[in-house]
Amino acid sequence: MSLNKDDVVKIAHLARLAIDEQSIPAYAQNLSDILAFVEQMDRVEVGGTLPMAHPLDMAQRLRADEVSESDQRALLQQGAPAVEAGLYLVPKVID
């Protein structure tokens, strides 16, 4: 599978990555090479195999439904660029 320029632009947009125009061909080539490398596995017969969801063959451990976290807002908000009235402030977003 080979990616064209539009694919690269779309992927970059979905990942919110800013890329400059000149580097697009190189990204397209590199990403296509990676896909070609992985595509070698298409030759393996997997018809009767369940898809693997996790490399560890273990079951998820469950946690008892108990409140174990206390309010650490003051501490956690020290790392935020802008807060007000307990809220994290971000550039305006409207649907």
Partner: peptide
């Protein structure tokens, strides 16, 4: 009582971000 992946409370009406 607590969230699906953490031990923070799910009670409604708390101060903003006090249960995050």
């Amino acid at each position: 009582r607590s969230k699906i992946f953490s031990g923070a409370s799910t009670a409604y009406g708390a101060e903003p971000n006090a249960q995050a």
